[in-house]
Design a protein around this nucleic acid. Structure first.
Length: 425
RNA sequence: GGACAGGUGGCUGAGCGGUCAAAAGCAGCAGACUGUAAAUCUGCCGGCCCAUGCGGUCUACGGAGGUUCGAAUCCUCCCCUGUCCA
């Protein structure tokens, strides 16, 4: 544990901006991190650079199963990544996430950068150690916050200038800085900084976002390749992946351009951004199908921020491999529970004396043990446990859905799976 | 027994002559939530009627009277509650 102290001696690259004398400092950084590795990676020492392999394809749809190999374990795809923005999947413990079978979670660069700050996470030996999560982590770059916190900042060619939503302090995020931060975190999948446009957006704004995202993508890629070996906290585990992000709103030509420019740069995986931000369902699905068709077949495709259980099923049919969404956890905190029979609002009076489980078809520990009546009571009483039980169940529902999706693909019957899912919804 | 203070919709509590079916909060009922500024937000919240309008009507601010064109708001008496003094 004493080794942790040495981390603070690592030269401060973080504020170095676009150009910095990285090479000069490589040695010192390497030494510092190696000291940390030797004491902390026992049992995890097999180096595993990021890799993706496809294991099965559905004959009737674009669905496929695969395996993502990351420094922190392998992940079967299609997969759902629970969202833990601030280094926690809200209301759940890491033990519970493991129990749920989550192999990868998403965290957020912007939020963790503001609090607790990079230095705190570096001092802990990276984000995995900081939050005691041994499995994979994908970190979002903060591009989404460029949109969702729009009032707090402005986008320039150079980067994103903004004020902290926490204390109003001024910050400047560049594509390089976003990459550095994620590398220092020890993220398994690093996302480029992008500009996510809201819906509706003008053609001009969307075009600019595509252009800017492509420029930033290039800078991010260069910076990533130049620095990953010296910046990741546990290099012996293997190197992380960098994903590009395709923008372009609902405009096919802009999407095509974005997908093309992204592939010219070249990434380990490709994300579809800027979807489910207000456009119609059919637009979401159409754009997903269109963009997925433009992306390399042998690389992972990640549909960012999506979605409802039905969205997942539809996305997989269009060739998506990864999803993340706050919906199962946020809705859970607001008493909305996903079940095999659809969504229910467990706070409603009709469940006051309902002795049954949240979902009769569910095998999670919440459904095996607690009644609707009790969980409704917890919500009405404002008890914290309500959020935990509902979040656990909802994530179980999502992860179980993904598991059944993979089974259907492997069995070559995903077309039927899709049809019956559509009937139910 | 005396002196104050007060009794308002399920609760707390504004209002102190008309624009009051009555602020606000809570509770209640329902809804939304898609790379989390979210344990958040929104709507409804006396009854009935036409219906979907800053409508109509009835009952309502402890009780009974009164003043007034008009009262939750002013006056009288009564009932009740709290605090203090005997």
């Amino acid at each position: 544990m004493r080794n942790l102290v040495r981390v603070s001696e690592v030269p401060m690259f973080y504020l170095s901006g676009i150009e910095h004398p990285a090479a000069k400092r490589n040695k010192a950084v390497k030494g510092a991190w190696r000291a940390l590795d030797e004491s902390s990676t026992a049992g995890l020492s097999m180096s595993q650079d990021f890799k993706f392999e496809i294991t099965a394809r559905d004959p009737a749809t674009k669905a496929r199963t695969g395996v993502l190999h990351t420094p922190h374990g392998t992940i079967e795809t299609p997969c759902f990544m629970p969202v833990g923005t601030s280094g926690t999947v809200k209301s759940l413990t890491q033990e519970q996430l493991e129990q749920l079978g989550a192999k990868i979670i998403l965290s957020n660069t912007y939020h963790l950068y503001l609090r607790p700050g990079l230095e705190t996470i570096r001092a802990a030996g990276g984000l995995h150690k900081f939050m005691s999560w041994p499995r994979a982590i994908l970190t979002d770059s903060g591009g989404f916050q460029v949109m969702s916190l729009k009032g707090l900042g402005r986008v320039t060619e150079e980067g994103y200038e903004f004020r902290s939503h926490l204390d109003g302090s001024k910050h400047f995020f560049t594509p390089e800085k976003a990459v550095e931060t994620q590398l220092f975190f020890g993220s398994d999948i690093v996302m480029i900084l992008d500009e996510c446009v809201p819906y509706p957006a003008s053609h001009e704004a969307t075009r600019r976002a595509v252009k800017l995202t492509a420029q930033w993508a290039r800078r991010a890629r260069d910076h990533f390749l130049a620095n990953r070996r010296i910046m990741v906290p546990e290099p012996s585990l293997g190197m992380p992946a960098l994903y590009g992000i395709v923008q372009g709103g609902i405009d096919p030509e802009l999407r095509r351009e974005s997908a093309g420019r992204s592939q010219e740069i070249g990434f380990e995986g490709y994300a579809l951004g800027g979807l489910s931000v207000g456009e119609s369902k059919s637009a979401t699905y159409d754009v997903t199908e269109f963009v997925a068709g433009l992306l390399p077949d042998n690389q992972p495709r990640y549909l960012m921020g999506v979605g409802t259980p039905q969205d997942l099923v539809e996305g997989v049919a269009r060739g998506i491999d990864q999803f993340d969404c706050v919906m199962p956890t946020r809705n859970a905190r607001n008493a909305c529970v996903f079940t095999s029979e659809g969504r229910i609002v467990i706070r409603n009076a009709r469940y006051t004396r309902d002795p049954g489980p949240l979902d009769p078809a569910c095998g999670c520990f919440v459904c095996r043990r607690y009644s609707r009546s009790y969980i409704r009571h917890l919500f009405v009483a404002g008890e914290m446990l309500a959020a935990t039980l509902a979040s656990y169940h909802n994530l179980y529902f999502y992860l179980d859905t993904m598991c059944r999706i993979r089974q259907a693909i492997r069995a070559g019957v995903y077309g039927q799976f899709l049809s019956s899912a559509r009937l139910r919804s």
